[in-house]
Write a protein that binds this DNA or RNA. Structure first.
Length: 745
DNA sequence: CAGACAAGGCTTTTT
DNA sequence: GCCTTGTCTG
């Protein structure tokens, strides 16, 4: 039976969709309709009634991608697809662990620890082991443990390899940390991927069960899989061998998280009988942007190679803009946004501002705010990692999983209820003596001897309140429980009386959290709803811990989007502005020594460029405040990124606005063309207040000290501080406001 | 035991 | 330079 679905596809896409049995590798260039192929393939399998929904497993890296795929498959078919497993690697694994966790000694109400929780647990372990935390920092230990888990090295393998004293200490911490997680009925992020594999080894029957169930497996973004992902996919597909992976080696950008580009490069070796389909027609960008991106990425050695082409022939040239410093960069960005909006009748959400590091957003925000341009920042300090949110979530976690000692420690004396450090230590000691958990110690508080009866009362009342709410779990909705907790423990109180803007924002965040729990309850809880019986608090907490900031981002909201290049993967915008195109920042200087790292930076640039549909801007700043070594907050003079040179002249126009005073300066680099700046006058006037006329390298005359050269400029709350070297007096630190300096040419 | 102030750390990217 | 954590004082 021929399917109408095939009519919407180009020949390459169609051959990928029509391939039914056996391994399939789809090399999908940026914007080549990858999601389309995946969804149509699922739709085709289901429509032809060859496969049942519950026989399909589709995995992605972000919830956004998973939800999008689900939505689009449903749009293609006339029948529901309940029972299909479609989700992120982490959520699929969490689901398996909820079902099978008992075989590993876990209860199904386990908690998932994020990085903050993990570090806190490690701190706790280090205290117990009496390891000096100023010599070995908990973050360091965490990094080593997480890195080991990503490489699938357990504590015993780590211990065996440990050579140095520090490594042997980390091995001890690793052991204790694992014990603590088990005691807390908690998995960390890395465990979610590894523990199912442990389970499969331990209980082959369970592996067999899932192998039989999933007749067709589809994997998105295969280029970003690490060792654990790789084995998961390989093991689950071993029986039916209907494994379809989609990826683009040029977009592999998670090496630092253990992703191994070799997984996709050697797929053909793993499955010699696999079919390979290349999707090279791009439906997103203009030919100019594509050709430029192709030229850049062709400098990489490690790639399978492909050449993207587009029907959108021609297109505007890429504009490369040089600014004087990060403030000037922000102003140029404002100008670009205004002119694009006026010229092409765009809305704010058609424009994305991308950068290498989150720290760059601050300077850009500042200028956008002054220019009254609405913006949203995706990433940075994540919503669910904010203090006030984690406080509320900690209560919910303890109610769902009382063994979660990390959460319990957080709330036991917050808000303050007179259970101070000394009391907590006594409780911990009791728990250790009785071989039990902290929560159990609270329950048994009346048995503990050296506590005053006043303290005992406080603890008893606290734990009884928790117990009462816990009993409501079975009958009340997630929202009712959460709202009850916030009210009972007065979690809004510390912020309600304050008029500080920060506190008002915190209050709003708590309200937003409650709203999100309410909509979760509505979406899932209603009888006959999409997920009947899944509106539990437990499920909510799992969802929340696996959410990313991109998942929370609303592309329809009318605001310019600011995010890192990593976060932008998989998205597209009519206008893309990439900031901080400087040697040392992008590519980062720490990648200079390592060709593999440098290639990854280049791929990241490729990802950024190919997000743009119509216009691409690349902006850099000659001077930028950066953190380097122990010289924090110092300004550095930069040259433009080497990546810019990899774009052939025919695809770009270069301009420079390297000016702060009344006159423009020509760049010493001749290849950069000098033009008059269309600078925004009001924003420029406010810049002047910060004494922008003083630049490193300028010569000045001081009434008393004579002629000197500026070696440093610091702009602080006390005003602008200048370091000036005078021939007569040597180095002097001066406050610009009082020094009465004259700049000389 | 809580609030105010100082010191120290940090910034590459995140499920 | 800014934010988080630790220490001191009331």
């Amino acid at each position: 039976m021929p399917s109408k679905l095939l009519d919407d596809l180009n020949p390459a896409q169609r051959s990928a969709v029509e391939h039914i049995n056996g391994p399939l590798l789809i090399l999908a260039g940026a914007g080549s309709g990858k999601t389309r192929v995946l969804t149509y393939r699922i739709g085709y399998l289901l429509e032809q009634r060859m496969v049942r929904p519950y026989e399909i497993l589709a995995v992605t890296f972000t919830n956004k991608a998973a939800n999008e795929m689900k939505r689009r498959v449903e749009g293609l078919l006339q029948f529901p697809i309940d029972g299909m497993w479609i989700g992120t690697f982490h959520s699929v694994c969490a689901r398996i662990l909820r079902i099978e966790g008992a075989h590993l000694g876990y209860d199904s109400n386990f908690t998932i620890y994020d990085q903050d929780d993990q570090v806190r647990q490690i701190q706790q372990v280090m205290e117990g082991l009496n390891i000096n935390q100023s010599i070995l920092k908990p973050r360091q230990a965490h990094y080593a443990i997480s890195d080991s888990k990503n490489k699938m090295l357990g504590p015993e393998q780590y211990e065996r390899r440990a050579g140095t004293l520090v490594e042997r200490q980390i091995a001890k911490i690793y052991w204790e940390y694992e014990t603590a997680l088990r005691r807390n009925n908690a998995f960390d992020f890395d465990d979610l991927l590894i523990k199912p594999l442990d389970l499969f080894t331990k209980e082959p029957a369970i592996l067999e069960k899932y192998q039989s169930k999933f007749k067709y497996i589809l994997v998105d973004e295969y280029q970003d899989t690490n060792k654990a992902h790789y084995y998961l996919v390989r093991q689950l597909s071993a029986k039916h061998r209907n494994i379809c992976v989609v990826g683009d080696e040029d977009q592999s950008i998670y090496r630092w998280r253990g992703a191994d580009i070799e997984n996709i490069l050697s797929f053909e070796k793993d499955y010699p009988d696999c079919e390979v389909v290349r999707l090279e027609q791009n439906y997103r960008s203009t030919q100019v942007i594509l050709s430029a991106a192709n030229s850049v990425v062709s400098n990489n050695q490690k790639r399978l190679g492909k050449n993207l082409w587009s029907r959108k022939t021609g297109g505007e040239k890429i504009r490369v803009i040089g600014a004087s410093d990060e403030g000037g960069e922000g102003l140029e960005v404002v100008n670009v946004i205004r002119s694009e909006m006026a010229k092409n009748r765009l809305s704010y959400n058609d424009i994305a501002l991308l950068y290498r590091t989150n720290a760059q957003s601050r300077a850009l925000e500042d200028k956008l705010r002054r220019a009254n341009i609405p913006y949203v920042i995706v990433g940075g300090t994540r919503f669910y990692e904010r203090k006030e949110i984690k406080d509320v979530l900690a209560y919910l976690r303890v109610i769902v999983n009382p063994r979660d000692a990390v959460a319990l420690r957080r709330i036991v004396n917050y808000p303050a209820r007179g259970i101070g450090m000394t009391t907590q230590q006594k409780l911990e000691q009791y728990a250790a003596e009785q071989q039990t958990g902290l929560y159990q110690a609270l329950l048994e508080v009346l048995e503990i001897k050296d506590l005053s009866s006043g303290i005992k009362d406080k603890i008893h009342s606290f734990v009884s309140t928790l117990e009462t709410i816990r009993k409501e779990l079975k009958t009340a909705s997630a929202f009712e429980v959460a709202a009850g907790v916030v009210k009972t423990f007065a979690l809004k109180n510390p912020y309600e009386l304050s008029t500080l803007p920060d506190d008002e924002a915190r209050l709003e965040n708590i309200n937003e959290l409650l709203n999100s729990i309410a909509s979760f309850t509505e979406a899932r809880g209603a009888a006959g709803g999409e997920f009947p019986g899944e509106a539990t608090l437990e499920k909510y907490l799992e969802d929340v811990s696996l959410l990313t900031d991109v998942d929370r981002w609303d592309p329809g909201f009318s605001a310019v989007t600011l995010m890192t290049l990593h976060s932008a993967k998989g998205l597209e915008f009519p206008v893309v502005i990439i900031c901080g195109m400087e040697q040392g920042l992008f590519p980062l200087s720490r990648t200079f020594g390592n060709p593999d790292d440098l290639e990854e930076e280049r791929r990241l640039f490729y990802v950024g460029m190919t997000r743009a549909k119509d216009s691409l801007y690349l902006v850099w700043a000659r001077q930028r405040r950066r953190f380097s070594g122990n010289d924090y907050g110092a300004s550095f003079i930069n040259t433009s990124s080497k990546f810019l040179e990899e774009i052939p002249e025919e695809y770009k126009n270069e301009e420079i606005y390297d000016n702060f005073g009344s006159q423009y300066r020509k760049s010493r680099q001749q290849r950069i063309r000098f033009e008059e700046s269309p600078r925004d006058v009001s924003a420029y006037a406010s810049e002047m207040l910060d004494h922008p006329e003083y630049k490193i390298g300028d010569w000045v005359i001081h009434d008393e000290f004579g002629r000197g050269q500026i070696l440093g400029v610091e702009r602080g709350s006390a005003g602008t501080r200048l370091s000036v070297f005078f021939k007569s007096k040597g180095l002097k630190k001066l406050i610009a406001e009082y020094a009465n300096l004259r700049v000389v040419e």
